[in-house]
Amino acid sequence: MSSVTPTFNVLTSVRRLWTGFLAWGVMSVGSSRSSALIRIGLGLIIWTRFAYEQLPYRYELGWHTAFSVLFYVFTTLMIVGYRARMTTFVAGILTMSFYYYFGLVSNYEPYTHHHTYILGIATVLCALTPSDKSYSLDRWLAVRAARRRGEPLPPEAGNLWGLRLIVIQLTMMYFWTAVDKVHPGFLEGDRLEALFMYYYIGSSLADWAAWSWVFAVAAWIVVILEFALAFFLPFRRTRKYFVLPGLALHLCFYLMLPVFTYSVTVILLYLAYFDADRVHRILDELQGEPIERRSG
């Protein structure tokens, strides 16, 4: 008979989980390439969403002109990767200000949407990744300096805690959006039915008895999938079963609802789920042999 008490077992398990979480969260070191791809992608998505609206000539000369200039300077530096961590952080703060200042304080409703928030918070979190170590002007300058000094090339690696925070953000997003849908009005298909009428057919649903069933089934699929994405995407063993359904869900959102840059942002952030070194190896395979070896 075991002398170990159940309380001791629980405490040991909790401690093991906590240690594992710490190791995963703040002590993982890995390739910086997925972080760099996220940085470049987020910069381009920020331009897609906000660049036209921030053109300096659209505003009277004043503080908003200065804001526009800062927006263009820092998003450009973020994309090319010059002082990438700092410029990404400033670009993230500027993007978050679309949500908090222009959206919530100045009541500009389009900037209060979830796509603005996820773009801003993801950019701030990206500043905490080692995104400067790959695909950046910083990297190019560091490689040139190392070669000049005859030193080995700097590693494309760093602490991945920023990527882990992106994973936590995506998990919370899926979890809470699923929680919001757990009520009869959604699960019986009513909300999807109303959305369908609002966007597609107007005020009178066609006389087809199966409509309510179709919307109820679709509602259950959405809720189950969102919970599954929250709980299973972060884990390597279960991730492979849910990446494609997750991408399909976001493509459906993109094609059927006015989600603006939301889908493409989340799809880009899926890079944070994958093992950074594996992404690095895949990119090596994708890029093939170096040009000097080919020409030699």
Partner: peptide, 12 residues
């Protein structure tokens, strides 16, 4: 909060 599209179509 994460309550997407919860207000769209309300009042329809």
């Amino acid at each position: 909060n994460w309550v997407m599209f919860s207000a769209i179509g309300v009042g329809l």
